[in-house]
Amino acid sequence: MDLDAIVRDLAPKVLGYCTLETGEPALAEEIAQETLTALVQRWRRHGPPDSPAAFVFAIARRRSARAMVRRRLWLPIESALGLRDSRQNPEQYAVNSDERGRVARALGRLRPADRQVLLLLTVWDASMEQAAVTLGISISAAKMRALRARNRLRELLEDGNGTRQRRP
């Protein structure tokens, strides 16, 4: 296995995954950067992991979850202290106002367990078996979560609940 090729293959996946998990491009890039760095360090110091994709996904998932918890904890405090500008910056506005933002918001309303299966199957291009192994669940459970995620996401996008600005 070639480290450079694997990092280049995983980089867009992990960045896309973190973007949809956190909803903040800058935070997503930071988490994805740390995740890829962890893979490179592990690879060069201790050898390649059994599954680089699973290794990267596990770290990205954990760090995204921590970042979201931190954001939920600090957001009210920063808002109360006036440290956080409630207005969106141009990048955030562009993201939220287009199709990408609608899908991201709808994904954000799914159950985390369901969303992760769906993102593994789509963004990571994993098979159902690979997704089940990565998440440590049975294949039937992964299928059930994927079905539930797709149905719920379809409902949200059709009802416009994933978006606040419906296209004319």
Binding site: P25, V103, L107
Partner: peptide, 12 residues
């Protein structure tokens, strides 16, 4: 639906 998710995740 999957394609829309993939497009939403397309990074810079």
């Amino acid at each position: 639906l999957d394609e829309r998710v993939i497009q939403a995740a397309a990074p810079d």
